[in-house]
Amino acid sequence: MIVKQRAYEAKEALLMPALYAAQREHGWMSPEAMKSVARALDLPPATVKGFATFYDMFRKKPVGKHVIQLCTNVTCILSGSEDLLSMLSDKFGIAPNETTTDGRFSLVAMECIGACGTAPAMIVNTDFYENLTKESIFSILENYK
């Protein structure tokens, strides 16, 4: 793993970016991924695990090729994200936190992603989409093969 320890005074400060890098490589926060971060930063593995499991955006289990993270917090729900969620579930045959059998998509019901003004919103992998409608959501997902 390539993480340079430059601008950071304490190793802990580097933990979040290191975990992201590890997740990019390993796909999720596998024990090996957490251990490699611990080794790279010379931090106790348990400390790394505490961090990694605290944040929802670090995956606790393997995910598909693309991760659909649909916000299901108050504003998005009021703007119809619950319907969108059940549509996605029906279409791909998976419940939230599950992965399609072909490994293409994982579906995640997210807490607030800070887009209340343009709700409903979702993040696919690291791409952000807002003002979603029943139509737009599927055409967006078409781009993720």
Binding site: P44, A46, T47, K49, G50, T53, F54
Partner: peptide, 9 residues
């Protein structure tokens, strides 16, 4: 020892 942690949230 830093052997234990609080996991999740």
């Amino acid at each position: 020892a830093d052997a234990i942690t609080i996991t999740n949230r």
